[in-house]
């Protein structure tokens, strides 16, 4: 018996070795593929997790509805503001941007920014006297015009002013702007969120929210804000509140830096126009 194996059995052993090597290679390759696939799934999960966390942070940061610095709708402060506004405007006709009788002999154009704290001082201070003394009696009508001053973002300004103008489609714009000024938040605190605007709308008595929402899409209101800005620019106004006053249908004169607390700046001008 020779220890040397015949070529046939040698070939078989070689084939077996190759077979075993191929099997080992296949197992190694399968294992490597599995490991790579596991690694990819972990990477995919990691990326998805990071994106979910970032989006959650953005959602919280941009506000899920809460408003900073402004009273929450239906809070005692908001209810008090609504009661005061309803009482002030009760029985006074409104038509779009105009408060007062359409045939009033004198017209005041009030250029304001709903986030402007000085406008708030004026609206809560001097304006009620003008309304009670001249608007309620049919002598003066007031038109509200938009002019961006305190609001930092153009988009926010446009959105809030259009929200007010859209209430004018139901002749309730003055309720909306009065409520806005009464419940105005801290300047620059980002309190004007969609839910803040909707919360104000919900406080306007008799306002159909669905009609108000669809009116907000009307491009005419966005264009109104733009044309108001042009009018303010043409008049050379640099701040709010600013006013144009004159006989209805006649030429208007500028009235800037009025008293914020009483009607003393308006009374002499209005009286003169009424007499003249």
């Amino acid at each position: 018996m020779s220890p040397v194996e015949d070529p046939e059995s040698d070939l078989t052993r070689k084939q077996r070795r190759e077979q075993a090597r191929a099997q080992r290679k296949a197992v190694e390759e399968a294992s490597a593929t599995q490991s790579a696939q596991r690694k990819r799934l972990i990477q995919l999960g990691g990326i998805a997790g990071v994106v979910v966390v970032i989006i959650a942070i953005i959602l919280v940061a941009t506000g899920s509805g809460g408003s900073k610095g402004a009273p929450a709708p239906k809070s005692p402060a908001a209810n008090a503001a609504a009661a005061s506004v309803i009482s002030l405007l009760q029985g006074i006709p409104q038509n779009g941007i105009t408060l007062g009788n359409a045939s009033a002999p004198v017209t005041i154009q009030y250029f304001g920014d709903l986030e402007c704290p000085i406008c708030k001082q004026f609206t809560l201070g001097a304006l009620p006297s003008v309304i009670q003394k001249y608007v309620r009696t049919g002598k003066v009508k007031i038109e509200y015009r938009s002019m961006q001053t305190a609001t930092r973002e153009r988009e926010t300004f446009q959105t809030q002013q259009v929200a007010a103008l859209a209430a004018g489609k139901q002749n309730l714009m003055w309720h909306y702007i009065e409520l806005f000024y009464h419940e105005q938040g801290e300047e620059g605190s980002g309190y004007v969120t969609e839910s803040y605007l909707q919360g104000l709308a919900a406080q306007v008595p008799g306002l159909s929210l669905s009609n108000w929402s669809s009116a907000r899409n009307d491009p005419a209101y966005a264009n109104q804000v733009i044309s108001d800005a042009q009018a303010a620019n043409q008049s050379g106004f640099t701040g709010t509140p600013s006013f144009l006053i004159g006989k209805t249908g006649g030429s208007m004169q500028k009235l800037e830096n009025p008293s914020l607390t009483d009607a003393s700046s308006f009374e002499p001008v209005i009286e003169k126009l009424l007499k003249g």
Binding site: E155, T159, V192, R216, D218, P219, A222
Partner: peptide
Amino acid sequence: SPPVCTAGGSCLKVQTSIYSKL
């Protein structure tokens, strides 16, 4: 300028909303 939009003023409303910037 307002975006070309078939859904009324929806695009303008979204484009000028407070969420159009982050």
